[in-house]
Amino acid sequence: MGCIFSKENRQFPGYEDPINLASQTAFSVSEVEALFELYKSISSSIIDDGLINREEFQLAIFNNRKKENLLANRLFDLFDVQQQGFIDFGDFVRSLSVFHPNAPEEDKIEFSFKLYDLDNTGFIERQEVKQMLIALLSESEMKLADETIEIILDKTFMEADVKGDGKIDKSEWQSFVCKNPSLLKVMTLPYLRDITTTFPSFVFNSEVDEIA
């Protein structure tokens, strides 16, 4: 028994061995291969170079070319684990793994903390949260007066910033999320359970004929 590999996928820029990726993530080998079908489509949507750039990432999220979005940009930065200015297949799978329904909750809490810690200081600061609220309002039809935003921030920090130093650290975030589990909803993608049925064509491109 053994593995038979085709060379086609391995020659794809940014490609990484699915067996290796499956061993490091919440995905099976078949699921990693199905994700490769999705990855190929996103990474060739603007420039067919086998890598996902910032614009391709935003295009995939918004389904159309749209002006820059702060939160999609932040997600891109976190997916771009090696800070290369693009997402390669390994980055894509490892990052999406955190969003798997079976991924450990601690990983989801950690990722969500980083997501909101826009300037990577190790704290979620009031100014960052305000910036994200304003970005949200600019993309929606919701209009809120500045004083309403401040009331929302006061209420949020009163609950989350237990130490009262004007910023939320990791342990405060953990407690806050435990009291407000709906905040982690955005960190779980039920689609990832059915990835092989969403992208069945992976079977035709599978590199793994048989796994011992």
Binding site: L38, S41, I42, A60, I61, F62, N63, N69, L70, L71, A72, N73, R74, L75, L96, F99, L115, Y116, V129, M132, L133, A135, L136, E139, S140, M142, L144, T148, I151, I152, L153, K155, T156, E159, A160, N180, S182, L183, K185, V186, L189, Y191, I195, T198
Partner: peptide
Amino acid sequence: AAPLTMNAFELISKSQGLNLSSLFEK
């Protein structure tokens, strides 16, 4: 729900920019 009943992060999580589900809805 009215924004004032929600905390800031509940509101932010509604951003389309964080909606990775759209990657799978082709």
